[in-house]
Amino acid sequence: MNHSLLMNNMDTRYTLRFTAHKEGQLLREALGEWRISKRALTAIKFEGGLLTVNGIERNVRHPLQIGDCVEVKFPPEEKSEGLVVEYGELTIVYEDEAIIVLDKPAHQSTIPSREHPTKSIANYICGYFEQQALASTVHIVTRLDRDTSGLLCIAKHAHIHHLTGLAQRGGDVSREYEAIVHGHVVEACQSIVAPIGRKDTSIIEREVRNDGQFAHTDVFVKRRFYIQEEPMTHIRLKLHTGRTHQIRVHMAYLGHPLVGDELYGGTRQLIDRQALHCVSLSMQHPLTREVLHFTSSLHEDMQQLINNS
């Protein structure tokens, strides 16, 4: 399969180009092999997209010849209703025609909420896309809690989001975190496999419960230390699933809540947020299948905790 992405000043629709490699194959079958979803095909047909073969509009029943040039023009996207376009600072680690990887600060939401309706990453990405004249909306691939810092990935188009979703389900998106927790974690490395669900008495808080969703976290001790005679542990964690508050819930379940995480039993005497940072993100590029790897250093507030020990 050969493919490329086309963008030009005359047509802002997201466009992919493929080269047919099977004689007589129906366009519909080729599009499936190229991972164009049925939902996307419906949108192309009814919402202003276009399928062409060698520059001529065709329907999905068209038989292809080897070497045919197939262009898939996706309909323009509209941002979610209520998502305000704002302009603010974004720390971009990587960007190409398909994805953006950011280093998110603490105290900034990934998406707007009732409590924090503006100044989120999503708001700023909307403004950034507008400045670039991209007919796209925000598609969060890897989300972080408001007070968690570090790497997160955003897809520039719904089709790219679809491809990254396939990659996540196939285990081809890997995230690692570092955290500081209360107490000395005894085991140097361990796996926590414990289902997580919403707590009955809260719309926000999660807990380990038998009827929860499968959740798997690996924990590795980096260093045990004391601050003001209180034992703490600097740990590294690898997520195998992506449940809401997964690391925070699993560490509290172990009896070692994150420092600063008042929701799950931590204290904010030394830091004003949960001490959690996404330090590593590895993924297959959704178009090229190239393996990408990004890293981020701990932010100053967490580094200061470790240095003061």
Rank of each mutant, 00 (worst) to 15 (best):
S174E: 15
R206Q: 14
R146C: 07
A179W: 00
T164K: 05
A215I: 01
H161P: 07
A194E: 10
I154C: 13
A167Y: 12
S120C: 09
T118M: 09
V249R: 01
L258G: 00
A215V: 02
F225A: 09
R224A: 03
H234A: 08
F129I: 05
I203E: 13
G242W: 02
T217M: 00
H139Y: 11
T142G: 05
I180D: 03
Q213K: 15
V186H: 09
T148Q: 04
A122H: 05
H245L: 00
G127Y: 07
M232W: 04
V138R: 10
Y253E: 04
A133W: 12
G255C: 09
L152M: 14
Q228I: 06
K119D: 15
R209M: 14
A135T: 14
D211W: 01
T164F: 11
H159R: 09
I180E: 03
R146Y: 06
Y128A: 03
I180L: 07
G170T: 06
E176A: 10
R224H: 08
E130C: 06
E176T: 08
Q132M: 15
A252R: 01
R146I: 10
D218C: 07
G150P: 08
I154A: 11
H162E: 13
Q246T: 01
F225T: 07
H250R: 12
R248V: 00
P231F: 04
A122S: 14
Q131T: 13
R243P: 04
V221R: 11
K119F: 11
G212Q: 11
T244Y: 05
K238Q: 12
S202F: 06
P195Q: 04
N210I: 11
K222A: 05
H161Y: 13
H184V: 01
E207V: 00
L258A: 00
V221M: 12
H161T: 03
L134A: 04
R198W: 07
N210C: 08
A135Y: 11
H139N: 09
G212L: 10
C189T: 15
V138T: 10
F214W: 09
P195E: 04
V259K: 06
A158D: 09
P257H: 08
I180R: 04
G150L: 04
Q131R: 15
H240S: 03
V208N: 01
R223E: 15
G170E: 15
V186D: 07
R224V: 01
G183A: 01
V181N: 07
I192V: 15
F129H: 12
I192T: 09
I125L: 15
S191E: 14
Q190H: 05
H162R: 12
V221S: 11
H139E: 02
S174D: 12
Q213P: 05
E178M: 13
R243F: 00
S149Q: 05
I227A: 07
Q190P: 02
H182V: 09
T233F: 00
C189W: 10
R224W: 02
A252M: 00
K199N: 11
H216N: 13
P257D: 09
G260C: 03
A122K: 00
Q132Y: 08
T244K: 11
L254P: 03
G150T: 04
P231Y: 04
G183Q: 02
E176L: 04
T142C: 04
E187R: 13
K156T: 11
P117R: 06
P195R: 09
D211I: 03
V208C: 01
K238C: 03
G212S: 11
D218R: 12
G127R: 09
A194D: 07
S149V: 02
